[in-house]
Amino acid sequence: MKKNRMFAAAIAMAIATASHAGGVHGSSHGATAGEQGKLSDVSKTIQIDMYDNYYEPENIDVKKGETIRFVINNKGMLVHEFNIGTPEMHEGHQEEMLMMIQHGIIQGGKLNRDLMEMDMGNGQTMKHDDPNSALLAPGETAEMIWKFSDDGNIEYACNVPGHYPAGMYGAFKF
């Protein structure tokens, strides 16, 4: 099954690269999915392991108003993202992530952080430093503190082209 996911991701990435125009990275991807939390308000810590192309755990139970510390590990062989948002937010962000591939920032299993500082011509960069998102190369770990101030249709996803359609997303269950 994991081989099928890898194959599906490769096909989806090829299709996405051939058929989409990129957007600009740097918008607020978590505007309706909650807000950055404070360490002093954390009620629990959840470990997220990212593989090629799935998460463990696949779903997470949360409560409205709860603040969670996520410890995110990329255990895969590809660059992956942990991004908290609505399905609509993820759809828009996938176009921005495509631009990161087109500019050589994401190269399969490598992440060129120097290129993330590049000015895209409008004063915006591709730093990928939003509080609801972590972009990690294989073997990297990050922490995120998130407050679930909303309880709508919120999920976590990898928006690297091809990964979301291959099934790399999970639901927050309220």
Rank of each mutant, 00 (worst) to 15 (best):
S28A: 15
L136Y: 03
M116F: 03
A8I: 13
A14K: 08
D41A: 11
Y169V: 14
A171Q: 05
G139K: 06
K75A: 05
E81H: 02
P165A: 07
A142D: 04
N4I: 14
G34L: 01
H80A: 04
G23K: 03
C158I: 04
P131D: 03
H25L: 15
E140Q: 09
M77T: 12
L111K: 03
R5W: 11
L98I: 01
S149Q: 02
G121S: 06
D151A: 04
E88V: 09
E117F: 13
E81T: 02
M6V: 14
F174R: 05
A12L: 08
T45N: 09
Q94E: 15
G162D: 06
H103S: 10
M1I: 14
M116A: 07
R113S: 09
A166S: 11
S43C: 12
N112I: 05
E117M: 08
N53D: 12
G108N: 05
S27F: 11
H90K: 08
G104S: 09
N59K: 11
F7N: 11
F82V: 04
I105W: 00
G22Y: 05
D150R: 07
A21I: 15
N73V: 01
V42G: 01
G170P: 01
P161L: 00
Q36W: 07
H29P: 07
H128A: 15
D61I: 13
M99A: 15
S149N: 06
T86Y: 07
V79F: 03
M50R: 00
R113N: 09
D150P: 08
M1S: 15
F82W: 03
Y51R: 14
T45W: 05
M99V: 07
V160W: 05
A8M: 12
P165F: 01
I72K: 00
L39F: 05
E91F: 07
N159D: 12
E96G: 14
H20V: 09
T32A: 05
P165S: 08
L115K: 08
Q47M: 11
A8S: 13
N83H: 06
K44F: 05
F174L: 09
G76K: 00
F70D: 02
C158F: 02
F172C: 08
I46G: 01
V71R: 10
Y51M: 07
L115D: 09
A142W: 04
V71Y: 13
S27G: 13
M97V: 03
I60C: 06
R69I: 09
P165N: 09
D130G: 12
G123H: 07
N83W: 03
H20G: 11
Q107T: 14
P87H: 01
D61C: 12
N122K: 07
A10Y: 13
F172G: 04
Q102T: 08
K110Y: 15
H103R: 15
G76I: 00
N122Q: 11
I72G: 00
N59F: 11
E155S: 15
N112T: 06
N83V: 10
G109V: 00
K44A: 04
K38T: 11
Y51I: 05
E140R: 03
M97W: 02
D49S: 12
A21C: 14
P87G: 01
H90M: 02
G162H: 00
H90C: 00
P87Y: 01
P131M: 09
A8C: 12
A14G: 13
F148Q: 03
G22W: 02
E155Q: 13
K2R: 14
E81I: 02
R5D: 13
E143F: 11
N132H: 06
P161A: 10
T125Y: 08
Y164K: 12
E81N: 01
G162L: 01
G152S: 06
K38F: 14
